[in-house]
Amino acid sequence: MGSVKYRFGQYVLDADRRVLSHDGDVIDVEPGAMAVLCHLVEHRDRGVSEEELRHSMGSAGAAGDGAFAGRLRAARLAVGDSDTRQRLIRTVSPRCHRFVAPVTSVPTLATPLTASAPADDEVIRFCRSVDGTRIAYALTGEGPPLVKTANWLTHLDLDRTTPMWAHWFDGLTRGRQLIRYDERGCGLSEWSVPGFALDDLVTDLHCVVDAVGLDRFPLLGVSQGGAVAVAYAARHPERVSRLVLTSAYARGQQIRAASDSERDAAEVDLNLARAGWRTQGSSFLRYFASQFLGDATPAEWDAFAAYQRQTTSVANGLRFLEEFTRIDVSRIAGEVTCPTLIIHARDDPRVPVAQALELATLIPDSRLVLLDSRNHLFTAADPAWPAFLAHLDTFLSEQV
């Protein structure tokens, strides 16, 4: 899908390329202010809260109120406004702002767009999904590609320095190029989206691999990203050479409940998650983190909870929780034709090992590896982590 330029008065904003021009002359706008401006223009149909604007700024949004006010002021100055002269960017209520100038959208040719090129070998880019949602993706390392589906929850700008994810990059980029992306509704991808259904998530993955220009590639699905990977491999067998699923499931908790007691337990679990996520209570967030990191310390659970707060809004977190518990790829898993490796912790506290057995039963050309671990997401100190990498490397090296 092509990108879009926004024209207002004598200004033209290319939100994908993060370029603002006035009468053809490019205006220098620092990245944080540019992120604020782009988000306001893209969501000009409504007022946008300062919390949402902060998240659109990535790691820069973690700064204090004074720093945010400075970036909002810089965005206004870039388009000829000021704190008191608000012709384009108007404060509509305390801590809520809206782009109010008339805007004309001008379609352009589709191209992968570089947002930043850090000093290391990672490049973050953006593409547009079929419904227009902006999806952020990153390319890390060199060598044959490995595509990793998005999963709960990520932030491309933060993940490489987050202890729970840093070792994944070291391992997954060893001798290969890792392609990953933020799910719609979180991280650097667009937060205000029409839906989070499985079809939307599969379409987002398809748009990312098209933007990267991949014809055929191995695909890694982690946690609920495993269901997305299964659905994609079933629908696009010509694209996926090998499939790796870890901590994955075919059916969400509400779908797989087979008795009244299991359905009651699933509903209680979801209601507890709803209540805890709304209040952001520390006791709930620590309990929630323990479901992902069974062997972690309380301090590590708190760090995971703090990380989650930076990745998405409370409202989106609730939508994710509800959609993921209703995922069901059991009917199409049998259509996966590529060789598949399923790796699962024997004592996964969040996804029962029975789900790995079900996937191995449903997918024809699959093999199952069970590892001794109590972590849903393998930690760097987990003895299962090097075992996971060894199985992954062996499996991918068998490609012809």
Rank of each mutant, 00 (worst) to 15 (best):
residue 6 Y to R: 08
residue 19 V to Y: 03
residue 25 D to R: 11
residue 27 I to Q: 09
residue 29 V to T: 04
residue 41 V to Y: 05
residue 63 A to D: 15
residue 64 G to A: 10
residue 68 F to H: 05
residue 69 A to N: 12
residue 81 D to T: 04
residue 82 S to T: 13
residue 86 Q to M: 10
residue 86 Q to R: 10
residue 99 F to Q: 06
residue 103 V to M: 07
residue 106 V to W: 02
residue 106 V to H: 05
residue 111 T to P: 07
residue 114 T to H: 04
residue 125 R to N: 04
residue 128 R to I: 14
residue 130 V to C: 14
residue 134 R to E: 09
residue 141 G to H: 02
residue 145 P to S: 03
residue 148 K to P: 02
residue 152 W to F: 12
residue 153 L to S: 10
residue 154 T to W: 12
residue 161 T to C: 15
residue 162 T to P: 09
residue 167 H to I: 05
residue 171 G to I: 00
residue 172 L to A: 03
residue 172 L to K: 03
residue 177 Q to L: 04
residue 178 L to F: 06
residue 181 Y to S: 01
residue 183 E to N: 11
residue 187 G to E: 00
residue 188 L to R: 06
residue 190 E to A: 09
residue 197 A to P: 15
residue 202 V to R: 04
residue 204 D to C: 03
residue 204 D to K: 01
residue 204 D to L: 04
residue 209 V to I: 13
residue 213 G to F: 02
residue 219 L to F: 01
residue 222 V to L: 14
residue 229 A to R: 02
residue 231 A to P: 00
residue 239 R to W: 09
residue 240 V to N: 00
residue 242 R to Q: 04
residue 245 L to E: 05
residue 249 Y to I: 07
residue 254 Q to R: 15
residue 256 R to A: 01
residue 260 D to Q: 11
residue 276 G to C: 07
residue 279 T to C: 10
residue 282 S to V: 12
residue 286 R to A: 13
residue 286 R to L: 12
residue 287 Y to A: 15
residue 305 A to Y: 00
residue 307 Y to M: 07
residue 317 G to Q: 00
residue 322 E to C: 06
residue 328 D to P: 03
residue 333 A to F: 04
residue 337 T to I: 09
residue 337 T to Q: 14
residue 338 C to H: 00
residue 357 L to N: 13
residue 361 T to Q: 13
residue 372 D to V: 10
residue 386 P to F: 05
residue 388 F to E: 00
residue 388 F to L: 09
residue 389 L to Q: 05
residue 389 L to Y: 03
residue 391 H to M: 08
residue 394 T to A: 14
residue 394 T to E: 10
residue 397 S to A: 12
